[in-house]
Design a protein around this nucleic acid. Structure first.
Lengths: 190, 190
DNA sequence: TTAATTTCTTGAAGTAGTTCAAGTTTTTTA
DNA sequence: TAAAAAACTTGAACTACTTCAAGAAATTAA
């Protein structure tokens, strides 16, 4: 049930059976339907979510009233608002499932004592979040240096299966151009 | 000498005197001149840098051959390429001082054993990097939702001292518009 | 303190995107 | 399986920016 997460953890550290038990006891798994919200703007985010099946996204509603996807998370990705989590401040983001999902969640007030009990888990979360930060730096690089068309092709080349899974307009906003423009790129009308 | 770093660490965790000694022994402090490089594109980054005085930046050279700043780091900020650090892959970035700097550096092969010895430090780096990741999410939000002029004013309002310290063209590229356009915004010609 | 270099400014011309509105296709729901 | 809702497409008009080129101002070096 929790195996995808433990497999992921074991890529970075090695847990004792006793430690696995402790962690396991504090995890919660839930199935959620497409378009359900895990977090709404204005709420304080005090949960980490790990996707074991399906796909979720973080998005905002921009000043013009339309949704803009900032981040996707698929199988074996964590998704959360870390700023809200750490500062206990209202979130600027929505987190929503894009497909029916299976999600492991763990709450801050349960996780933090466990991290002190099992320091290897601190290590796991440190490495994962440093790598995510690094990935974000690359994302900014791509946004800054590539044209809309280049970003589309780059994304398509790197995540072809993913492009099939989610609506185009979400990918368009994630790549920071309009759905209409994406349609024209795809039709070769650029 | 290392006090700015220890002050920063003590905001998140509490170290024993013995632990402070261990860490201290593995830190290196250096003064570097304006425009010196800490990292060049293509090198593997195996060092973390903590700015105690001055200002550094991460930048790339874009396909047109001009520099684009992706990140600034001032006093009490860490700067590094975490993707290169963790994957031992060539970096896509330059890291360079923008002013004369005093910088604490710590190497991966020295740090990693210390982190195992002092798990509280794992905690420190985890929290710092999760917060940085959160800040990056906000940065993407601003890039996506604000016009060039709004980004300029927002940055100016939040970091007025900083705007005095670094050349405008670096700020312009950090905010993802041209130096010429920034000049026009400042002159109110927009 | 002069020369050299770096940074900033300005206007004119161009363009990579957006916005709007309407129609079509696909997917979901009942 | 029909109706409703969601997602995608298209073209025309627009605009927020970029690029270029040249000069002015500020900073640094000798």
């Amino acid at each position: 049930m929790f195996t995808p997460l433990f497999n992921h953890i074991q890529k970075f550290i090695t847990l004792e059976p006793s430690e696995i038990k402790i962690l396991e006891a504090s995890l919660k798994i839930s199935k959620i339907k497409k378009k359900e919200h895990l977090l709404q703007e204005g709420q304080v985010c005090n949960t980490l979510y790990f996707i074991t099946k399906g796909c979720a996204r973080q998005y905002i509603i921009n000043p013009k009233g339309s949704e803009q996807t900032l981040q996707f998370a698929i199988e074996n990705w964590w998704i959360t608002d870390y700023l809200s989590y750490h500062n206990t401040t209202p979130s600027h983001f929505y987190i929503q499932s894009v497909e029916n999902c299976e999600i492991i969640s763990i709450e801050k007030n349960i996780l933090e004592p466990i991290l002190i009990e099992i320091p290897k888990l601190e290590r796991y979360f440190r490495i994962v979040s440093q790598k995510s930060f690094g990935a974000m730096q690359m994302r900014i690089k791509f946004l800054f240096t590539m044209s809309a068309e280049e970003r589309y092709h780059h994304f398509n080349d790197h995540f072809p299966e993913f492009v099939q899974r989610v609506p185009q307009y979400m990918i368009a906003s994630y790549l920071d151009f309009s759905a209409e423009f994406m349609s024209k790129i795809r039709a070769g009308k650029i």
